[in-house]
Amino acid sequence: MTESSNAYEYLDNVDPREQARLAAVRRYRLVDQPVEDAYDRIAFVAGALFGTPIATVSLVEQDRVWLAACQGLTGVREIGKEPGLCASVIAQDDVYVINNAAVDPRTLEHPLVRGELGLRFYAAAPIRTHDGYRLGTVNVIDSVPREANPRQLTALQHLASIVADELELRLMVIRSAAAEQRMRETVN
Rank of each mutant, 00 (worst) to 15 (best):
D32T: 06
D15H: 10
Y8W: 10
D12N: 09
L153D: 01
V140A: 11
V97S: 03
L67N: 09
Q19A: 09
A23W: 01
R146G: 01
L59R: 04
T137M: 10
R120E: 13
A101M: 11
V45A: 15
V60D: 02
T137F: 09
E61H: 13
F121N: 04
D131H: 10
R27T: 04
F50N: 00
E36D: 10
F121W: 08
L135D: 05
R29W: 04
A69W: 11
A7C: 06
A38L: 10
A125V: 05
V163T: 11
V95K: 02
A38T: 07
E109G: 15
F121E: 11
V140H: 02
V76Y: 03
Q33F: 11
A20S: 15
R106C: 11
N149R: 01
P83E: 14
I141V: 12
R175C: 07
E18Q: 09
V35W: 07
A148R: 07
V97C: 04
N139I: 00
T74F: 03
S176P: 00
A46E: 01
T154R: 14
L67Y: 15
L30F: 08
F44M: 04
V138T: 06
V187E: 05
A148G: 03
I90G: 05
H130I: 14
L171Y: 08
I42D: 00
T129F: 11
D12H: 08
A178G: 01
N6W: 12
P111M: 12
R175W: 05
Q92G: 14
T56G: 06
F44S: 03
S5W: 13
A20I: 05
V113E: 13
N13H: 12
L73N: 02
L119A: 09
D12Q: 12
E166A: 15
D165T: 15
T154G: 01
A155R: 14
R170M: 14
N100G: 06
C70G: 05
D40Y: 02
A148E: 01
A68I: 06
A160P: 00
E61K: 12
R128K: 15
I174A: 07
R77M: 14
Q71K: 13
S143H: 13
D40C: 02
A123L: 09
A101G: 07
D15K: 10
R175Q: 15
D32P: 02
I54M: 09
T56R: 07
P150C: 02
L73D: 06
V25S: 13
T154Q: 11
E116N: 02
I127D: 01
G136Q: 02
Q181V: 05
A48I: 05
A102E: 03
L85G: 05
L49P: 00
S176A: 15
L117R: 04
S88I: 01
A20V: 03
R151W: 08
G115A: 14
V187S: 09
F121S: 04
L171E: 08
T2P: 00
P111G: 06
E9H: 09
L169I: 10
I174P: 02
A87H: 10
T52P: 00
L167P: 00
V57M: 07
D142C: 02
H158Q: 14
H110E: 12
G72T: 02
K81S: 10
V113R: 12
R184D: 05
A102H: 04
E61I: 07
R128M: 14
Q33R: 14
V60Q: 04
D94A: 14
S161V: 05
H110Y: 13
E3T: 11
P105G: 07
F50H: 01
L167I: 11
P34N: 04
T186Q: 12
V89Q: 06
R64D: 03
